[in-house]
Nucleic acid binder design. Structure first.
Lengths: 255, 255
DNA sequence: TGGAATGATCTACACCGTATACAATCTACA
DNA sequence: TGTAGATTGTATACGGTGTAGATCATTCCA
């Protein structure tokens, strides 16, 4: 194995076990069995090491060979794969069936993203904190592009919807991991949680709903369904406009 | 002014000027004119200080007096308010007009959130990194609840859609600030950007679109419009189901 | 007037990222 | 086979970090 990969693995393992703050050049070096300064020829800097860590995670999603998804939930990623609601990999297909339709494909990609973020709770916020332009992420984005095009989304809108999808998936995961979604009363470790003084008509009207515990799996699925609805509406709108513009002609690329 | 507020102001100012990494107990203390350890009785710890900073920002959004939005674009938030595309405050109304409809209200809240995140680029990622349950954020959430209820969203779905809205707005802002959206070639500060080896059919099919520069303002507006569409579809669905369940009766609160 | 509480200070500790200088090992070519 | 060059690891050191601990000044209330 490449020395760089060993370093990245050590860093990911430390982050999983003791949190992202525990990832220091010294701790990683110690785990690899080397002096801190020995890491620099391989990773360049601490920031580049963090970049490499998220790249490594996206590598879990699309192992190495291009577009094909992993064979199954335990295909050598990083240990047992607990409690995934639906599919194993981002593009998982029943063997022998045709190519998956864009809905199941996008939903699977979204679920895979959240699954990774749950396995590595430190990752989601990193995705927002630094540009993600590693080869692995480019590959992942390309698959999403393909699914959106297959759904009939016009090319103009595809990059935007890809970004929106990523924002929702990783934003959801980051909120889950960071505690943004947690109710205040479950977080009594500080003097926070004191309510504002003014009236809160919205909260009062929703008292019943807010009292019930939330089901995050269900909420994520509902968000995915809403995103699919957006995609479908966009495709539908494009189809009707195209029909109106050119009733029965071949389409030429504009511009 | 409370000493705590002065500390928070100093921290925010430092983050605005020199980035979040420049916010240290020592730098903040120096700006306040005090020893580092003197901060601890007021803010507790560095983590709590960061919490307080994002609370302070949400305080910009809803100044102090409960639900009423700021009177106009320059109503004393934090100085001049540069380059806002549409409205001034989250609930801005033309004076004398009726209460704003939920669409403009939600759009204004979203724009205000993004505007804050642009003024303080370090903030958006912090929102994801730590739980946001300050009094100010509770107040902000309450306004969103009200708008969603006014749109006709059933109570069951209101908290989820509020979270989805916040995820999209802050996720967009964090991506903008963190560089997740930036094209790789505009980020040449490292040896990243090397493309994967396999084919990228999606990118090839979208070559024209990807070559054009993106308009982030327009993209944000499009995302807001899509969210509004989701909200409307949810409300519409709920109305039709309700009509089917109780053909001509007064509605009683369920549960 | 006398505690007690609060706020601020000083010192110190363990840790951080990494610049710099140097030694060891491996590679490629004469 | 010998040697130059590159690559990889080490040792040391510097300036920075958050904060525990002890101490001192001020202020407020009994």
């Amino acid at each position: 194995m490449d020395r760089r990969d060993a370093i990245l693995d050590a860093a990911v393992a430390i982050a999983d076990e003791r949190g992202l703050d525990a990832v220091s050049m010294r701790s990683v070096a110690e785990r690899v069995g080397v002096t801190p300064m020995a890491l620099y020829p391989h990773v360049g800097s601490k920031a580049a090491l963090l970049d490499g860590m998220i790249g490594r995670l996206l590598g879990e999603m699309w192992p190495a060979d291009g577009l094909s998804p992993p064979a199954g939930p335990g295909s050598g990623a990083d240990g047992p794969d607990p409690a995934e609601p639906a599919t194993g990999g981002p593009g998982a297909t029943a063997p022998g069936a045709g190519p998956p339709d864009w809905r199941t494909q996008l939903a699977a990609i979204g679920r895979a993203g959240r699954a990774i973020a749950r396995r590595h709770p430190w990752a989601a916020s990193l995705v927002f904190a630094r540009p993600a332009v590693t080869p692995d992420s480019v590959r992942a984005i390309d698959v999403v592009y393909g699914a959106l095009l297959a759904a009939g989304v016009p090319a103009q809108q595809v990059p935007r919807l890809e970004r929106l999808l990523g924002t929702v998936v990783f934003g959801f995961a980051a909120s889950e991991a960071g505690g943004r979604f947690g109710p205040p009363e479950s977080n009594p470790r500080s003097t926070r949680g004191l309510l504002p003084e003014g009236p809160l008509p919205g909260h009062e009207a929703l008292a019943d709903v807010l009292a019930a515990p939330a089901d995050w799996d269900a909420e994520f699925e509902a968000d995915l369904a809403d995103l699919a609805e957006i995609i479908e509406a966009t495709a539908r709108r494009a189809r009707s406009e195209q029909r109106r513009d050119r009733p029965a002609a071949d389409r030429a690329s504009p511009g």
